[in-house]
Design a protein around this nucleic acid. Structure first.
Lengths: 146, 146
DNA sequence: TTTTATAGTGAGACAGAGTATCAGGAGCCG
DNA sequence: CGGCTCCTGATACTCTGTCTCACTATAAAA
């Protein structure tokens, strides 16, 4: 079963209608590189209204089929979610994004919960750095200044 | 020396002019509760143009006098930065924000760096939960649904 | 297959956050 | 005090996202 069919099945399971526009948006999402903006999808999925692209992205997010990545510059990107809860390591040069989930945030959160009496619900962690190839191409470049 | 004088001194040190508008914005920032939006400052600092408030907030952020908090609903808030690097624990009911810096993210980042060959530059961590008083007032309320 | 209730759509108006422009005003330095 | 610049405020604009509403198409019943 192809990726798109899996997603469509998930939509049906939740009682959402499978429309032509939704198919087009999902196809566009699947055709994107690792991460992308709503605008990218909008340009890729021709013949679909702007509002519908936003609505569909929100739907996919609600269904945990897609997750958000906050880039260094404050812009919000999306990417297909492969696993459940995980975090992102974003290369500030080329924009490549790695997932990681083998993190100790769980322990930190427990400690924090005990210390503050908060009932921790969720967290958001993004890590920024430069990937191996960018470091080879531009060793320690342009890292001064604002 | 008062808070405002400290900030002004910092401005001067970096070669920025100390203007009446900047004073008014800084006073407004100091008068805010723990966290606030640009809009809050805008309403509090009367007689200062919108653009100038944005410019001054950005300036304060660049000078590390103020830091950003990403709320659960996606809105960006500000707060005075008291220490250097730290993170936020945000109550999703009342919006209260706690700082914490005694976190193990450093170890996580080192491990991550070794595993991925990234040169880690920075990270962004926000934790969301419900604070003790909100849990007392509304025990396990309204946590179902979207 | 036809009907039907209603979820979904698209165009465009709207809203909120932030930036660009530019003439005029105010700081800082000599 | 004079003047070079930085800064300001008004406003137009951009960008992202939401709302509205008349219309359409889906899914399920008949």
């Amino acid at each position: 079963m192809s990726d798109i069919d899996l997603i469509i099945e998930r939509l049906e399971m939740r009682g959402h209608r499978v429309t032509a526009s939704r198919r087009r948006v999902i196809e566009a999402v699947l055709a994107q590189p690792s991460h992308f903006t709503v605008d990218d999808v909008l340009h890729s999925a021709r013949k679909v209204g702007r509002a519908t692209v936003f609505r569909t992205m929100k739907l996919l997010h609600d269904l945990n089929l897609v997750c958000r990545v906050l880039l260094d510059d404050g812009t919000l990107h999306y990417r297909l979610s492969t696993r459940g809860h995980h975090h992102h390591l974003v290369c500030t040069d080329c924009g490549r994004v790695e997932d990681f989930s083998n993190c100790d945030v769980g322990a930190l959160v427990q400690e924090l919960s005990r210390a503050t009496a908060y009932e921790i619900q969720t967290h958001w962690l993004e890590v920024y750095g430069r990937c191996a190839s960018c470091r080879l191409l531009h060793p320690r470049a342009a890292s001064i200044g604002s």
